[in-house]
Design a protein around this nucleic acid. Sequence first.
RNA 1: GCGAGCGUGGUGGAAUCGGUAGACACACAAGACUUAAAAUCUUGAGGACUUAAUGUCCGUGGGGGUUCAAGUCCCCCCGCUCGCACCA
Length: 850
Amino acid sequence: MQNKIDLEKKWQKKWNENSSYSVSNDINNNRPKYYVLEMFPYPSGNIHMGHVRNYTLGDVVARYKRSKGYNVLHPMGWDSFGLPAENAAKDNMTHPEKWTKKNILTMRNQLKSMGLSYDWSREISTCEPNYYKFEQKMFIDFLNKGLAYKKESWVNWDPVEKTVLANEQVIDGRGWRSNAIVEKRLLSQWFLKMTEYADDLLDSIPELNNWPEKVRLMQSNWIGKSLGANINFRIEKRSDVIEVFSTRPDTLYGASFIALAPSHPISISLSKNNKDIRNFIEECNKNSTSEAVIEKNEKKGIKTDLLASHPFDQSIKIPVYIANFVLMEYGTGAIFGCPAHDQRDLDFANKYNLPVLPVVQPHNFKKTKFIINDRAYIGEGVIINSHFLNNLPVEDAKRAAIKKLEDLKSGKSSITWRLRDWGVSRQRYWGCPIPIIHCEDCGDIPVPDVELPVTLPKDIDLNFSGNPLDSHPTWKIANCPKCNKTSKRETDTFDTFFESSWYFLRFTDPINNMPFREKNANYWMPVDQYIGGVEHAVLHLLYSRFFTRALKKCGYLSISEPFKGLMTQGMVCHQTFKTKDGSWLFPKDIVKKNNKYFLKNTNEEVFSGRIEKMSKSKKNVVDPLTIVKKYGSDTARIFMVSDSPPERDMEWSNSGVEGSYKFLNKLLRMIDEVNHLEKTIDVNSLSLNNYPALIKIHRSIQDVTEGIERFSFNVCVAKLYELTNTISRLDVDDTIELNIKFYGLKILAQLLSPFAPHHAEEIWFSLGQEGLVCNAKWPIANEKFLVEDNINIGVQVNGKLRGKIKYTKGSTNNEIESLALSLPAVKNQLDGKIPKRIIIVPERIVNIVA
RNA sequence: GCGAGCGUGGUGGAAUCGGUAGACACACAAGACUUAAAAUCUUGAGGACUUAAUGUCCGUGGGGGUUCAAGUCCCCCCGCUCGCACCA
């Protein structure tokens, strides 16, 4: 038996020599196309188990589809702009570019050692000017089509580092490096008009029927279309009004306060003459910009002197507050609070002693008075305490209230989206420069096409705080393309989601000096199967859907939806280990003895913690390279798909890996056993009943094929184990069994090839088959071996299993019934009584109701 | 806080349509081979209770419901995980 590494190297070399996985750019061929894509990695240093899982899943699909005769596009590249390169630069004083390129080199070799069937000639890296120059042009096209614009928006500002922080860099309201209290600041930034496609992005979700339902739901909720009303409240002694958006205009009579966002124009104007309000708004501005943080914080407000008039009854006066939970970005930046029917409003009202008047009463309410204590009622019901709305059901009352508001010219029906425009400006170095020049006279002028790309300067000062592009002495100086006046370049770069929003298009035509040819994109797109982590369920996938539409509007291609099929894989988890005083330990340093864990070096006892997602911070990582070196990549691949279904989280376990390794070794032993023997008989001519192994072989073809089609790869592996067990028990001294064994091994090689391609080639070759198994046509089960004549089903009495019966296919219900009733256990249960009913579900179950 | 998902033996999981729960594997135990170990092969097993019969009861996070029949459908609850717009 040869060394696994040599075996794998041998076949990788063969694939290379044959260019087995490269795809022709000639798209006029007759084979149907199939585009399988895994989310490309950020080159963080080394591949981790999450990558191994992701790319194994994709490779199974790619290899399977190839053998089914598809023209398969299966590319790989690098999402190589991003914050970690800048962090690494600060930590180790290495240039982001150098760090990134080194990582790519390492990771490319690691991926290549896994024998993944990529067309490496299409490799792309987004930090290359040759990639990002196209998106600079795209941005200018968006600008010209009105899909990009500039506005002010809030950022997390670290006053010590003088830099903008990502939400993840703000920990408990402080900068992660400086530990300074983070402030909110307004910056002028570029936005893409995603809201223009809000309706389309929402309405097209039903077409994405090869996406997981949960992702479609998340996207729907994210877009968040709400029907309601914009309502104007007049302010006492002032001429302006407060415009409020509400989905519950039916509860207007229950309004007990109005709350403004801290950044609402009225809040700002009030703060000018009121110190308390100014302090409160300042306090709110110390909050993070993260919605999760804002929502988790204690709900607080400050009362203003303003009183608003109720739109239906000017005599009702409602106090106006400024509250920390009202977002300027959503709706109109102001709400009316109806505490009885909204939990957040109720908490607020109870805190500030505001009245709670119920205006919706449950339909079946019997008692005399409906009272709200500390739980808001948000269900269905009829309106009470509301004059002209009384006795109407909620939905009717909404319509009536809106009608009245319109009659009074105090409001109108309105749709509000949760979806916001996409802010793409980042105050960072390691990203694609935004191709704009700010001229004092002409304003923001796009860099002319001939001057693209705007490339990043290499000589940057990493010690300097703030954005290195901004502090660079010369880079930002440019002449206005219009008036030639000395001007300043835009020093912000694009959000790195920009690159990942069109990389799948570049893969369809990666070498031409244009982003991609429309012809190629139209042929390959949409991606037939996209595979990646569920953490991208909303942002990346929604940005890409928007981007594709925007590119279509600019004439780049003619499709709207980039991803036809989506598979979201679960995380790779592992047990954690800690010392007595709670510091994390690497699993590789630990040995298990008598159900206790000890440090390898010192023999100190350590303790196992929860099973958690593999992460560097908890040290519960297993390095894929160590595994590949020890067991070979086929072992890692088989293990990755064998235990857990792809969409679920999986646990990495050493014993599981050992199991996969043993399985592959068993296969190699089997070929050693048969490859010196002669095969003589055509097994397809054998009759089926005498040879259960033949039936098993054909069942396996059927089961594995179906399993791959519906992503039950773990079941496929189980079926391969079963098939292996069956054929390993065949007797090589019996001529017929030997021939079935040959045949079974050949089929096994083919069924195995998407999962453990190196071993599959080895078996294929040892059996003396022509060519490479990766080019062989996928086997088809012979129907005559699939039909089962003997039916074996359970018999229940009152839904409980009491026995089993066997009959031949085609027996009548009467025959089945008498067979069932003749079972001793059934007779026992019936105890002489006559069954009330007998339910026979053909070939499934008999249930006798006594 | 809001949105989404998940929960089945000692462990990972299977059960495609509501129809024999626990396939396949890991771990475990016994046996074979071996001077021995490893490797390999064979066999066993959800839990409890017995009168030890191929017997009864319980069993898919907990509680309730629909149905001849529920891991699967509905309602409530518990636990864990993911996302929340500047991580990718």
